[in-house]
Every structure is written in C-alpha cells, then in structure tokens.
C-alpha cells in the first residue's frame, strides 16, 4: 500500500471551543491508483489532504490517527510519534506532491516562477541550477505551457489562473513524487484545459505508477479518472467504494444528494439535503446528517445512534443506518423509470 491513513482527526482550536473538522478518517491509496475524495464544501476534504503531510493550517492540530507511507510510519498520534521537521522533508514535496486550488496564492509572489520551480527541484534532488532549469523547462512544456523559455521569467501575478495551475503541477511533479495530492487542482480551469491536465496526470500514473488523491466535488472528474471514491461529510468518511460500484449502487444520502445536484444519473428533485452543511462545532447526536437527511427516521436510530462505517458490499463501506433502503429508493427514483417519483420519506 502506497499510503494508508488511519483514524485521522484534526481539530481547530478557537477561543473557548474546539472545532473537529476531520474525525477518524481512514483512507488507502495503492500505488498507481487514483483515489477520489469528494464531498460538499467544508466537509474536511482539504484539511484531510493537508493532514496526510502532517500539517494543518494555523491554530489547527492533528489530534488522532496515523499515516503510513510505503510501510513507513510518518506519524502516529496514539504513540506520540512523528517525523522530525528534517525527516518530513524527505516526504513533503519529494515523495508526496501537493497541488492546491488557488495556484497564484501558492507561489511566492515576489519570485519568478522559474526560480521557484528550480528551487523546489534542487531542494529535493541536489541538482545544479543548470540541471534544474532544464528540468523546469521540460516539465512546463509537458504540462502544456507555451514558450516555457519566456514563462520561467514571469512572476506569479503575471500568469493566468490556468497557466499558474499548470506551473504549480509542473513544480509538484518535478521531484518525481510517488503520490500526488491534487486538492481541487483542476476546478478553476476551463473544461478543455482541465481535460488536458487530467489526461497528463493519468498518463503519469500509468508510466510512473504515480498514486493520486484527487480532491474534488466534480463527480464527472471522479467518474472518469478515479479508481476508488471516498465520500466525506461533516468531517467523517461516510462512504467508500470502487468507482463503478459507487456510481452503480450509491448508498449514502450525501452521495445521492451530491450526484443529484450535478444531475448525474438521478432526478435532482428527488434527493436534497436540507439546510446548511453541518457545523462541526455542534454535531447533533446520532447520525451527523440526520437533521438534513430526507431519509432519516427515528425507528432506524438516525437521531440517537451514531452509525459506524460498515460493510455494505465487498470493498464498499457506508456509514448509514438506512443504507439498504436508501439504495433501493435511489434506484427507484432513477429516470427515466419515474419522472416525478419523489423520495420524500
């Protein structure tokens, strides 16, 4: 296994309260596979992605869980063990590359793009500046930047969003990482460029056995490029399955809502979560989603018993008391079988 994350929890400390934005999340990425991490905004996807690198944003703290990379433990909160700052550097950037959503904000605003990519490569490979520059030009070319010779001299603010995104991907790829975490890396791009980049990454995964975590809320991207899907809601992993199964027999209401909202496969009017995403500072008892969920019922214990992530099928796990009913109802709601068959249970 390239990456295994077990029971990861991240908390943000605020005055007088703690906000646990990721709770006991587990995830595995085999070498050369693409794992999609999906969920509505604010469900903890990006926090989880960053926590894989042992990092949080300011005031955040990893309060539980462990991460293993190629069998090597990077940190384990229960044992109080973690790599030192210097040891981490052998993984951050080098083995595990990260690409984020706002690429222009990810570059140092006062340095030229070329210098930054060169430096990133040099830090991890010890290459000379000449070698680094050759590598930079080659990679910029690969990610589809025209005239890389000129572009290396641009400052981040001089690049368009798409161009900066590609430069950032080139930078992340330069030390040849084994795992790439793409946190909404293509969301800001227009569709054609998005496809180019995804195809490039897909090729790298085949040629270099590059493992990937694709954080996205675009179900189309997930369906086309991922091998496995993890769905998060309110800081928890609530469903995971191989990609075909996920789209075939989706079982969690949050998944159906997400698919329905994007018009993938289901009638959009059928399933909608009510209200705003769950505030992780005040999680309700029982299932975190029960106040918003059209399937929730007190008989099933939705409002009292917190559901565990349990086997629904082989390799398909769901955290829902009513998973079986939900699947059945979702199937029933599928167009064109029924045009206005609501599932307002």
């Amino acid at each position: 296994m390239l990456l295994s994350v077990r029971g990861l929890s991240v908390e943000y400390r605020q005055v007088g309260s703690a906000n646990r934005t990721v709770t006991g999340a587990s995830l595995e990425v085999p070498a050369g596979e693409v794992v999609g991490l999906v969920g509505e905004s604010g469900c903890g996807k990006s926090t989880l992605a960053l926590a894989v690198l042992g990092m949080t944003r300011r005031s955040g703290q990893i309060v539980g869980g462990s991460v293993e990379f190629e069998g090597q433990k990077l940190f384990d909160v229960s044992q109080g063990s973690s790599l030192t700052e210097d040891e981490w550097r052998a993984y951050r950037g080098r083995e595990i590359g990260l690409v984020v959503q706002h690429p222009r904000g990810a570059f140092n605003p006062v340095k030229r793009i070329g210098e930054q990519i060169d430096r990133h490569y040099q830090v991890h490979s010890g290459a000379s500046s000449g070698e680094a520059r050759r590598r930079t030009l080659e990679l910029l070319e690969q990610v589809g930047i025209n005239d890389p010779q000129r572009r290396v001299n641009s400052f981040p603010h001089e690049l368009s969003g798409g161009m900066a995104q590609r430069a950032l991907i080139a930078m992340a790829l330069s030390p040849s990482p084994k795992l790439l975490i793409a946190d909404e890396a293509t969301t800001a791009l227009d569709v054609t460029i998005q496809e180019q980049i995804l195809d490039l990454l897909d090729e790298l995964r085949r040629t270099h056995k590059l493992g990937m975590i694709v954080v996205s809320h675009d179900m189309g991207v997930v369906a086309n490029y991922c091998d496995r899907v993890y769905l998060m809601n309110a800081g928890e992993v609530v469903e995971h399955a191989p990609v075909e199964r996920f789209f075939e027999e989706v079982a969690h209401p949050a998944a159906i809502a997400l698919l329905a909202a994007q018009g993938v496969g289901h009638d959009h009017r059928a399933v909608r979560l009510r209200g705003l995403p769950v505030d992780t500072r005040r999680v309700p008892p029982g299932c975190r989603l029960h106040l918003r969920c059209p399937f929730a019922s007190s008989d099933a214990g939705c409002s009292t018993v917190h559901p565990e992530l349990s086997n629904f099928h082989d390799g398909h796990q769901v955290r829902c008391h009513r998973a079986a009913d939900v699947t059945a109802l979702a199937q029933a709601a599928r167009p064109p079988a029924e045009s206005d068959g609501g599932t307002d249970v």
Partner: peptide, 19 residues
C-alpha cells in the same frame, strides 16, 4: 505571510526552514 497560502505551500513542498 505566516497565514499565507504560499508559506503553507512552501512547507508542504518540503522547503527547508531557513528558506
């Protein structure tokens, strides 16, 4: 700068502390 994305990203990219 401490709160900026680019500093966070520099750390995530394995930049040494002095950098």
């Amino acid at each position: 700068v401490h709160a900026s994305d680019y500093l966070l990203y520099a750390q995530a990219g394995g930049s040494p502390r002095q950098l």
